[in-house]
Simulated assay, not measured.
Amino acid sequence: MDFDALLASVRGPVGQKTLVVTGAGVSLASGIPTFRGPDPGAVWANDVTEKGTWAYFKRVPHESWLWYLKRFELARGAKPNDAHRALAAWEQWQRRQGREFLLVTQNVDTLHEQAGSQALVKVHGSLDRARCTQRGCKQGPPSGTLPMAELDFGPLHADPSPESVPRCPACRSRLRPHVLWFDELYTEHTSYQFEHVLRTAKYATLVVFIGTSFSVGITDRVSEKGLLNGARVISIDPSGVSPHQGIQVVAERAEVVLPRLVDALAA
């Protein structure tokens, strides 16, 4: 798909409902390694399917926390790139047109928020939040979280052990990162807004995937033919490879093509 066809699809008919789904590729230009991508910093090979699990946390909660904190620190120093800013501008253009728009990100970084996106669902959680492991606690599932900035990781860094893992201020159970692990379900926490995403996908007339490998549950569900009711589906991916039949590909980097797109919309 060339740029003119992309622009025409985004402009679309009056009343178009747009769903955008972003993956790790949209944050690569901000210096955050992907999980599965071809970039040198990709962490997929680092036993992610073992360490990114509830089972691993239960076995060695201190090692789980240290593994996540290392990645979180890298993400905290990152800044939004041109793709993040363009997506926020795209949302504003949609609003001015009186059109529905939802941005769903698989990323746990905070770059979309920093760039100004408001119609945003973080379907895999967020690195700036933690939650209690005790279900029903006000700081835990199904809906509770607390700011990561309020936690003291000094004891954990000084003497890593299960006993030095931060505790919930409400019930003293262990705290965990507020992220969706590989052995968990999207229904684990209401903030993932899984049902809202599926409802939006069902009624969307345009679905755009950006920087995703289509290797996690949310992309599989959203791209299902039985869910999408005749929506045009586009993937922005520099590889130029279509992940599924019927998905048109824009072979460009997101940080290059998206600013050009919003400039054309505003013209």
Rank of each mutant, 00 (worst) to 15 (best):
M1G: 00
M1A: 06
F3L: 03
L7E: 02
A8V: 10
R11F: 03
R11D: 02
Q16G: 01
K17R: 15
T18H: 06
V20L: 01
A24M: 10
G25Q: 11
V26G: 03
L28S: 11
L28V: 15
A29F: 08
S30A: 08
I32M: 05
I32H: 04
P33L: 05
P33F: 07
T34N: 11
P38D: 11
A42E: 12
V43K: 12
V43A: 07
N46M: 10
T49K: 14
E50W: 13
T53F: 03
A55K: 14
F57K: 08
R59K: 08
W65E: 07
L69M: 00
L69E: 03
E73Q: 14
K79P: 02
N81K: 09
D82S: 12
D82Q: 14
H84C: 01
L87C: 05
R95N: 02
R95M: 03
R96S: 04
G98H: 11
F101V: 06
L102Q: 03
L103Y: 01
V104F: 00
V104D: 04
T105A: 06
V108E: 07
D109T: 11
L111Y: 12
H112C: 05
H112K: 06
G116H: 08
S117V: 09
Q118M: 10
K122P: 01
H124T: 10
L127K: 11
A130G: 08
R131A: 06
C132R: 12
Q134S: 00
C137F: 14
G140C: 00
L146V: 14
L146F: 12
L146P: 07
P147T: 13
E150Y: 09
E150S: 10
P155E: 10
S161K: 15
V165S: 07
P166G: 07
P166T: 10
R167P: 00
P169Y: 14
R172W: 11
L175Q: 08
R176C: 01
R176S: 04
P177K: 13
P177S: 06
H178G: 06
L180T: 08
Y186E: 04
E188M: 12
E188Y: 13
H189S: 02
T190A: 01
Y192K: 07
Q193E: 04
E195Y: 01
H196E: 02
V197Y: 02
V197R: 08
V197S: 04
R199E: 06
T200C: 00
A204M: 05
T205H: 00
T205E: 01
V207M: 00
I210L: 00
I210K: 05
S213Q: 11
S213D: 09
S215Q: 07
S215G: 03
S215N: 05
T219S: 08
S223V: 09
E224Y: 07
K225V: 09
L227W: 09
L228V: 15
N229Q: 15
G230W: 13
G230N: 13
A231D: 11
V233D: 01
D237V: 11
G240M: 14
G240D: 12
S242L: 06
H244Q: 15
I247V: 05
Q248W: 06
V250H: 07
V250G: 02
R253Q: 10
L265Y: 10
